[in-house]
Amino acid sequence: MISYIVRRLLILPIILIGVTLLVFSMIMMLGPYERLSTYIKDPAELKNVDVDVLVTKLGLNDPWYEQYGRWISGVARGDMGWSESAGSTVTQAFLSRFPATAELGLLALLPVVVGGVILGVFASVHHNDFWDHVSRVLAIIGWSVPTFVFGLIMLMIFYGTLGWFPPSRLDSWALDIVNSAGFINYTNFFIIDGLLNANFAIVGNAIRHLVAPVITISILWWAFIMRITRSSMLEILRRDYIRTARAKGVKENVVVYKHAVRNALIPVVTVAGRMVLGLLGGLVITETIFNIKGLGQFMAQAAQQLDYPAVLGGTLYFGFLLILINLCVDVSYAIIDPRIRLE
């Protein structure tokens, strides 16, 4: 197991370099003058200088590998230039928006994977009965309604009509508390910080604001994870080794939960990995609809305002994130399946 993870980690740098090269080549598609903008914090800086001198001074006409070297050492230090739309460095902009997105993403992901698997196993054991058909219908609806339509409907019903689940991250009274001196922002995850500060009003308010976006972003995946688990289980339950287990006198629920589920999880992990990618896309839409100041919303705004440094920095960050997710998926496979671990 350890040796498998080490082997995985050893190829990580190669992939990382590949990703940086890819992003760098996107940067290089811009001309030197456009790239100059990533160094300019205020247009006033350009008033008294010759732009060509600046370009030469910053080495924007140097051979690409020299520029790559400079850029990558900047990236390594967390320096990805100045973001016009955020009014701060790209790194600062990302760090300040990361908690909102992570909170939303994790709350969308974990219950879906755990709950979807449990429901899927249940559905496979009770296949073809009433709940099985209900889940099938829900899955089809979940798949066919686009996130932005679903999000707007949620907003309309649960905020517009019922007033239950407001948009943004917190009500303004709660924001005042969070920004006050007495409240310590340990993580900037409002639920966790609320708990750590023993301020349950904040926890409650944060959750209330998260319900609608979490449902919006994950509704489709509930159904999907569940259906995949179900069909995987149905296939596994027909395998010879399940019959072997029964022939040993193993109890039926042990047959299902010990012998079948672990094998059935293998395709589920694949789907969960893809789900994370899907969530990243869904974040942009969901954060925009529910006015959550997270990375998705930031990226969308940056793109609209042609804020190249933010977009490219974001691409790089998301690239790294994907590599990390892939690693998690691969490690999960190895934990579940000894054939992968020992190959």
């Binding site: 080794y241 072997t244 287990a245 022939a247 094998n263």
Partner: peptide, 30 residues
């Protein structure tokens, strides 16, 4: 009775054992 008084072996040894548990675990289970 199964596995105790009457036990059974099957045609396909390649697929009759659970791939995610060790052979020891599977014998011990019975």
């Amino acid at each position: 009775i199964r596995g105790n008084d009457i036990s059974m072996i099957f045609q396909e040894p390649m697929t009759s054992l659970n791939p995610v548990y060790t052979v020891g675990d599977q014998i011990m289970e019975a």
